[in-house]
Structure formats: C-alpha cells, structure tokens
Design a protein around this nucleic acid. Structure first.
Lengths: 357, 357
DNA sequence: CTGAAAGCGCTTACAG
DNA sequence: CTGAAAGCGCTTACAG
C-alpha cells in the first residue's frame, strides 16, 4: 500500500525530462505542440517518450487544463428483456451513441458511458457522480425529471435528447410534429381513412407526449376521428403494442381504419397481433411506425414510418455540447428534420419496392 | 478565454468549506467517510454540499488518489454494415460491455468507451491516448497484434477478451476447445456423420484460430474426414457464410455431411444459402453455430450451437482487471466454461422443443 | 528557445 | 476532532 513501486510504476513527465536532459516544461511543450522548440530538443524528447512508452496522465492534464475531454452519456437499459426480442430499442440507443462518439473523436473527446436499469434507485446520485468525471453530460430519453435535469444542468453542461430545453440545459431532438403530421395527412387525406388510433409510448417519455399531442392536433385538422383513452397506452415495446391490440379486440371494440404507433417496435407488435387475429394489414387496418429501425423494411408488409436521423442526432448532440463546454452558448433547442418513408403497411403498393434510402 | 467565470463557475471544495465554516480537510473527510467527524461538522458540510449542488472534481480526486475509477473499453465497430443485417456481432459486443459495466458499477468505476472502425489507421495511438485517461484497459477481439498488446500492457493493466495472455497482459476467454469438441463429437459420434467442414471466422481472430485448430484435432480424434482449405474462409458475418457455400457449390464441390460454423452469424448465412440452393438442413447437411446469440433459437431449424456466457465474460474481465489495478496479480488466464446447446439443425428432433435456457 | 515556479482541486499524513 | 500544508502530474505565464 504505502510501498512505492520501484522499477516501472507510473511514468511521469519528470522521467521523460531527465532521460531527455531537458526540463519538464520542454517535454510538455513538445508533447502539446506549444511554442517553437528546437529540432534537437524535440527529437530528444520524442525519443525518450518512445523509449519509455510514456503517456501523459489524463487526470493531471485535466486538472491543469480545466478540461477532461470526456463527455458522460447516460441511458436506460432494457433490463431483463434483453434476450426477449426487445433489442431494437437497444440498437436505437446505440446508433445514437455511435453518432456521439463520432462527433467526440473529432475533438479528441471520449465517452464515459453509464447505463441505468429500469428499477435502479439512486439514479440522480449515479448521474451526479458521473458529472464529476466529465466536462458535460448527454442524457437519453426518460433519464430524469425536468427538475432533476435543471438541478444537474447548473453543475455541468447538459444536453438532453428528447423533451425540451430547460433554462440551463440544451435539447436536441427530431421533429416529431412534422413526422406525425406527414403520417396523419398521408393516412387521412391521401388514403382517406376517416378513423385513426395512436398506440402511445411510455407515458413518461417527452417524445411520446409530443407525438401524442401532434396526433390529436393533426387528426383534427385533417378531419379524421380518433380513438383514444387508456386502452391505447403502449410502452415502446413490441409486447406493449401487441397488448393494446389484444385488449381492444378482447373488449369487443372495433379497430380504427389505421393505427399509428409510437415507434417501429410497437408497430411490430401491433402487426404481429393483428396477424394472429386474422386481420390483414393494410387491407383491414393500416399500420405505421416511427424511427425507421433496420427491420422496418423487412416487415410484412414493409412498414411505412418516419426516419429519425439517429447517428446525426448523436453527432449534433455532441457538437452542441462541445460548443457549450468550450465557448459557452450554443443553440439550446436544435430540432432535426425527419423523413417520411412510404412503404406498404399504409396501403400504398409500389413505393417500397425499389425504394432508395 | 482568459476571463474567469464570476457567478457560478466550477465549485470547489473551498466554496463548500467556507460556506460550512470548516476547513477543506473536514469537507473532504465527510465526503469520503474518513475519520470520525463530529455530527455537527458533518451536517454543516452536508448542508453546504446540498445547497451548492457540489460534486467533487474527478480529475483532482484521481490525481490525488492515484486512481481514476475508470476503465477503458475498446472494440471494433461493424462499420458500414451496421444497417445491413450484421447487427448481431454488434449485440455480441454490447452484451459483453454490459457485463463489464455491471462489474464496474459494483466498485464505483465507469466505462470509457472507444470504438475503432475497420479501416481506422492510428489504432495504437488512439488506444494509447485512452490509456492515459483510465486505470486499465479491456480489449475486445482483434484490436491489436500480440506485440501491440505487450507494448500497451507495460504502460497500463490490460485485459484481452480473446487470444492468450502475454507476459504482461491478462486474458479472459471462453473455452473454445470444449465447445468445438462437444460439437464435433455430437456430429461425428452421436450422429455418425463421417465428413465435416468448418467455415472459419476472420483469420486474424485468435478465437477463430483456436476453434479452427480444435476442429481439426477433434475431427481426427473422432475419426471424421474434414474439408478444409481457402474455400472455407469466412469472416464471422452471414454474408461470409453464405459466400462459402455459394462458392463451394458453384465450383461443383460436394458438401460435407455437416458444417460447423465459426459463429452463429455465419451459420445464419450458411443456412440461408443452403435453402436458396434447395438443400435441406439437417436432412442433407447439418449445420452448427457458436455463441448462442438471441436469434439462434428462432432460426429454421433452431440452431444447435455453443453458448458463451457473454455477460459473465464481461463481468469477470472487469473483476480480474480490478484485482490487478488495486492489488496487483490476478489470474492472468481465465477460461470460462461454455454450454453445448442441442437444438435441431444438427439432426436432433425433440431436444429443442421445450428447451429451457 | 528554455527553465523555475505557481497553480489546477483534491486527499492525507502530521500536529495540535 | 480538526486545520495547515504538502503532494499528486501536468500546463503555462514569467523571466532569462
């Protein structure tokens, strides 16, 4: 414990300096490309660094620079359902994280990742601890309440990936409203379906609330009737979607002509259950999703949905966080455009066939 | 740039101390549960911490403690194939990472994650930089050459997840040999198939080399003939597996009675191509996988394979790294048992039906 | 161009 | 029980 390691042990800049016969200031300068060191100085330092396999200590650099070059990313794991077919939401999050990472690498940042289980308790504490190890935080959907976010945001720069900005936090999201609008109009106007239902996502999800509200607004604007109520409550999972259809049918209720789903995963469950019950999609009921995850195009029939630019979402989240960290400011409310993807589950025939991106 | 933030700015332990009317030493002690502070002292400190929303700076703690409480995790991304159905390997890695994270959280560690694209160049440099920000590194399969690993390992504790330990690095892996042995014996002895083929994984993968060698050894021991050669080179992807079958058939070669695949993903491709060519599995050709990823049980027919305890693999990798970091030593070569999973693609009928885990 | 020295925000013997 | 002070490994004005 108290015994200092002799031989190797963590190398420091002092070891490099003495081996190169220069001061630690010179070592630091050549390592960071500061100033204009003489060629010979540079070479001696470089050689010593190489011979010793020296890597500067990140904590010391961070303390001195006031910059850790680390951003924390927090999200919820699917918990026990990991192996039960719920891997899609998992993928969804991972694609976003990949985008964050791409953005981060451009600036020499790394990602400190912390996932939270669905029934972990001390979430706020865990996130707080993470905050101490990072220059800023990116929070996926449904991590913290609005006040939790606000509190966190005045200790460290925070970007949320759903919902809306607080006075102190930044938000980046996709244009849910436009996506829902495109869906509703296509269904109600292009196809002329007069009756629509919306299988919602988790009730504590800001994205879901936005989509749900947009659904009501747009349906009214398009003159379509809507089915609503607690029976339509899903939870972003396929099981949740299947469940809604099953309960509706079991209760003897008539299905609307078209069902919009909070996400693709939900649509998968809805379509599965409809098939079980002998309902044809889209002939009897049209179904649409949201996200455009990879399987969407392989469903039967191929799913009409709205594509979110997930990787781009992540990259932009990093970029705006980086701006806030390094310069302050930064757009507090970025909304990314979505793309309406027409395939066949809405009732269209040809569109999906040779569809390019 | 040079302008110090007035109002809030990063809070320090000094701010807490002065607000609580105690010394910074006392603040530090109550925050870390060291010593036996008086109740009143503790309360004043806690209140100040709460009122200020103070979180200690991780870099400063790390520097002072000589411990960052961060482990770096490095892996390769599927690159451009992400959306083309290759998500399985992705999932494979992620389940392992999840295991690492579970282990890490038990000790208050976080994961610093860095993925490397398939044609990124400066891999060693990237990993080196990561090393400076972490207390230790966990490397997935195929990240670095043996000498690269050795070099890295004498600057920071390193655990590899495939291959074998170097003098300085630790390795954790599954028992590939036993898995292959179970497969070969089942096929050659239980089913009596006299001719076997092995569709390999990427040639630079230690796991693949081990499996390939075990295949040859066990087939010889079981008295089965084997088909080998460059035509059997796969790459862990479904496309790779399909390709091997297609080339073999196009070249007019006779398929062996049973085909072992380097992983489940490969088996997926092999079975797909066999179906295309009108060959029945397992009647004409038996097929087996390796890994037991989620889809394996849903394939047609359900895939006989070998289950790797992926999440456990990750958890143990962390644990052994943690031991090395905190106390030195630690078992340098951990081999986890695998489980032989009999389903139907090998020619068995009943086994898979009601199979429990 | 280069070195001596201060400072980043913590923790922890060491004295009281 | 508590405070003053040294030290962790860097970076960067500040003098030469």
């Amino acid at each position: 414990m108290a015994e200092p390691k002799k031989a190797k042990g963590p190398l420091t800049i002092y070891d490099v300096a003495s081996r190169a016969g220069v001061s630690i200031a010179s070592v630091s300068r050549v390592l960071n490309g500061q100033g204009t060191p003489r060629a010979e100085t540079r070479e001696r330092v470089m050689r010593a660094v190489r011979e010793l396999s020296f890597v500067p200590d990140g904590a010391a650099r961070a303390l001195s620079n006031g910059l850790k070059e680390v951003v924390g990313v927090v999200f919820r794991r699917g918990g026990e359902t990991l192996f039960e077919g719920e891997d899609e939401s998992f993928l969804f999050i991972d694609v976003i994280n990949r985008g964050i990472e791409v953005g981060a690498q451009r600036h020499g940042f790394d990602l400190l990742i912390s996932s939270v289980g669905f029934n972990d308790d001390n979430v706020a504490a865990r996130i707080g601890a993470l905050a101490g190890k990072a220059d800023g935080l990116i929070l996926h959907d449904r991590m913290l309440s609005a006040v939790g976010i606000a509190r966190l945001a005045d200790m460290v720069p925070v970007v949320t990936l759903a919902g809306s900005p607080t006075p102190a936090s930044i938000n980046v999201r996709c244009d849910n409203e436009s996506g829902i609008r495109a869906l509703v109009r296509h269904l109600a106007i292009d196809h002329g379906y007069k009756n629509l239902g919306y299988v919602s996502g988790r009730s504590d999800s800001p994205d879901n609330r936005t989509r749900s509200r947009a659904f009501e607004t747009e349906a009214a604007a398009a003159g379509a009737d809507i089915d609503t109520g607690p029976a339509w409550q899903g939870n972003y999972s396929a099981a949740g979607g299947a469940n809604v259809v099953a309960s509706l049918l079991d209760a003897g209720r008539k299905l609307p002509r078209a069902i919009l789903c909070a996400n693709d995963q939900t649509a998968l469950g809805v379509m599965h259950e409809l098939a079980q019950r002998g309902r044809q999609v889209p002939r009897d009921v049209a179904v649409t999703g949201f996200d455009d995850v990879p399987v969407a195009r392989h469903m039967h029939p191929p799913l009409t949905t709205v594509r979110q630019p997930m990787q781009e979402l992540g990259a932009i989240a990093f970029e705006v966080l980086y701006t806030r960290i390094s310069a302050g400011g930064g757009n507090p409310d970025t909304v990314l455009p979505v793309e309406f993807i027409v395939r066949e589950s809405c009732g269209c025939r040809s569109a999906g066939a040779k569809e390019k991106t």
